[in-house]
Amino acid sequence: MYKSEMIKKIPQRQPKKKSRSNSPWMIALRRLFRDKTAMMGLYIIVFLILISVFAPIISPYDPIEDFNLSDAFQGPSMKYWFGTDWMGRDILSRVLYGSRISLTIGLASRIVTLSLGITLGALAGYFRGRVDMVIMRIVEIMDAFPNFLFAIAISVAIGRGLYTVFFALGFVGWSGMCRLIRGQVMAYRESEFVEASRSLGASNLRIIFKEILPNCMAPVIISTTMGISNAIMAEAGLSFLGLGAQPPTPTWGSMMNFGRQYIWTEPHMVIFPGLAIVLTVYGFNLFGDGLRDVLDPRMKD
């Protein structure tokens, strides 16, 4: 309450310029930039993206090629800031490169989730009846399995590797997205602006894509942001179980997996990749929370 009142007052003080875009998205974006939580999250995410893009430039060593058995199991030092692993590889470099895998998995798995979830959710919510029944039965079956176990099952079934992880983590998330979209589409399909569009002779496709889905984007964006952090965590979990990307690919999960056996003597092997995961998940969750604050109290103004 208090917060929204404050926000409302701000635009009145500014002179109304013609160039200010009035689109609901631009209004939300301006509000987002004023939201401290969201911006903190965004800074962390941008920081991670920069690291993954410039990993080859900023890493002191190559994460795979530069191994030196005589330097194995070293704690943090000036030479190796985060220490080295059992093969004498620089953990800092591996953590920096690991961001590439984590971010890629976070995003790529969302492509699977979004395309399946939006398509099936829109079909179920819009056409209802038998289509809805079939899709929702599948969703219920999906939801009956714990997500992580399901991802493990898929990984075991189609074999290890990076692409398996993209697919497995995307696939376990679609049912939630499907429910979300279905509910939204069902609510909007009864709205008067949809009836108006139908009166004009709009096709079902046009109504779904041009009238309904643009109105469902706020919760989709929020849930996708949160989904990225879940996927990153799940990837770490899969790698930790040895089901993710295979060695010597540097991923945070597999670094923790291999560091696990030395945790009492060489805790740095687990701590640094662990911190990287925490920071990433924290960043996306902060951003997601901020987005929720900005987008959820429906976009009137």
Binding site: P24, E192, L200, G201, A202, P214, N215
Partner: peptide
């Protein structure tokens, strides 16, 4: 054609006036 009761829910909040009115021509 129909004119609706609720002036708020009868216009798509995500569309500009030219899209709302021009939709008829697009179709």
């Amino acid at each position: 054609q129909m004119i609706f009761q609720d002036p708020f829910s009868s216009l798509n909040p995500r569309k500009m006036v030219k899209q709302i009115i021009g939709g008829a021509f697009e179709i």
